[in-house]
Design a protein around this nucleic acid. Structure first.
Length: 271
DNA sequence: AGTGCGGCCTGTCCGC
DNA sequence: TGCGGACAGGCCGCAC
């Protein structure tokens, strides 16, 4: 599920509730996620205070006085603020009880997410250390992408979804950005002229910024920290629109598999 | 070194 | 109505 806009929506939602809050207790119902939840998580967190909530790619970093709580929402995860004692729903795996009486619940049907502890404060955790640039930073530029794509025979779509190059761009927004830039998803990354890559970078930034502004994309189950969906689905040009008319030229949107991911594009608008 | 694939999970939908 | 298979927003690790 969550790509960068959904993670950022979640970050902004929980921020005002959790910053400054003391963690009174932690309950782990299901420790078997992508990375096993550490058995000493409760002992690590109890009594500590949340100082800030940052984001790196699709990871949320809850900064505490004694270290960092690292959370990834995987494909189907969400974090919600609920009243303490609210009934546990199926696939609610972990809860963080705050001294205020509110409660942060981690919910993840497919359990591809990560909730783990990092004793440090730097971004040197093994899961973070090889991550590429942030897409909304000035570092992510046409020049940068051109340098990273040079000589690559790999298609452009998996290239912009490669977290070692740029973080946060998942399947929905990769499809959408390539449509906006007029670039075919299957074109070899190393065979795209620099000005077109500059256009692609601008499209990535635009699509992510617009999605954040409306609370992300809800296809089926993404909800923000208040349990509400995001509204970017209404602005999707190609994703999940196979055989529907292109909104620019009317040609039928095509679907194919590329690097095991569903890929949608307009064969006329994207070259 | 770069790329392609299977696997991790549950839920849903579609065709038979 | 029931069942098997394909597929779903992510990412890692292992082959080649």
């Amino acid at each position: 599920m969550p790509e960068l806009p959904e993670v950022e929506t979640t970050r902004r939602g929980i921020l005002p509730v959790v910053v400054g809050a003391t963690i009174g207790d932690v309950q782990v119902w299901q420790p078997r996620l992508r990375c096993a939840v550490p058995s000493d998580l409760r002992a690590r967190l109890r009594g500590d205070c949340i100082v800030d909530v940052e984001r790196r790619g699709k990871y949320l970093l809850l900064r505490l006085r004694r270290g960092t709580l690292l959370i990834h929402l995987g494909m189907s995860g969400s974090l919600r603020i609920v009243a303490s004692g609210a009934p546990r729903r199926t696939h609610d795996h972990i809860e963080f009880l705050l001294a205020s009486g509110e409660c942060l619940r981690y919910h993840d049907p497919r359990r591809f997410g990560v909730v783990t502890w990092w004793a440090g404060f730097d971004l040197d955790h093994p899961l973070l250390v090889n991550l590429g640039v942030e897409p909304l930073d000035v570092e992510f530029s046409g020049e940068y992408l051109w340098t990273r794509a040079r000589g690559r025979k790999c298609a452009i779509k998996p290239s912009i979804m490669d977290a070692n190059i740029v973080v946060g761009v998942g399947n929905i927004y990769a499809n959408e950005a390539l449509f906006l830039a007029g670039i075919s998803p299957i074109r070899a990354a190393g065979r795209i002229a620099k000005p077109r890559l500059e256009g692609l970078v601008e499209s990535v930034k635009a699509v992510l910024t617009q999605a954040i502004a409306v609370g992300g994309t809800t296809l089926r189950d993404f909800v923000n920290s208040s349990g509400e969906p995001g509204y970017f689905k209404q602005q999707l040009n190609v994703y999940d629109r196979v055989d529907a008319p292109c909104l620019q030229c009317g040609t039928s949107i095509r679907q194919r598999r590329l690097a095991q991911r569903s890929t949608y594009y307009c064969p006329r608008c994207q070259k």
